[in-house]
Amino acid sequence: MNQVGSRILWGTLKYASLIVGLFVVLFPIWIAVVTSLKSNQDLSNLGILQWPRHLDFGNYITAWNGGDLGSAFLNTAFIIVLSVVGNITLGTMVAYVLSRFEFPLKRLVLGAYLVVLFIPTITTQVAVFGVIKGLGLFDTPFALVLLYLGTDVVQIYIYMQFINRIPVSLDESAMLDGASYLRIYTSIIFPLLMPASATVAILKTITIYGDLYSPYLYMPSTSLGVVSTALMRFEGPYSAQWNLIMAASVIIAIPLVLLYLFLQRFIFAGIVSGAVRE
């Protein structure tokens, strides 16, 4: 094949593929938005791909009230804030100890976190369920907070990479000034880890926001609904009222889409450093 021909062919193929990809990604989202804006009348009279005759934002109000989405957002926010703050605190603590000190069981600790990575959390729920009940946390938000709180090997590695870039001389000069190790952690290590913590917090937020089976299993009360479970329960009373179901789905999807618009770079960087370590 000659050079120019191949370049034109590849160029065409490239943009054609992107347009197909874009269409496949956007078509379902587009349909969801269009449907969510249709009145009951438009829903039954118009074609499924047609734009509504007049925009009916009433679906959003009905969905918000009927699905108790306000309290779902509050419950979710409460769980996310507590879990993320705790998670960052514990994660930085573990990483600080593992990267700055030598001690006998260090490899064992790291090894334990690595082993856990290969136990899919969802498979052990049958037994975790007993633990949560035993702790008296069943059907409380703290069940979820405890489950999300624990740090994992991916976070530890993200933090350790960052800590290893903080010169030890910084610790040492603080020690010359009489700072304790605890002081070094609180006023040097923790603040300097903030960029890594931002990444960890975003990844954790995405995970918690999308989690379905933990809230489903551990917080069955309707009043304790989080976004996933509230949306799932919404289908029951409103089954086949697709304009309402789509409105509720769009509402639930919006917060993370906004987060994504503003923090895209962090999210990409987080996913990459979560999957790959040096």
Binding site: P28, I29, G210, V227, S228, L231, M246, S249, V257, I267
Partner: peptide
Amino acid sequence: MLNAVAVAFIFKF
């Protein structure tokens, strides 16, 4: 970035 339950409903529709 879309909530998993929302995605499931969208495709169900």
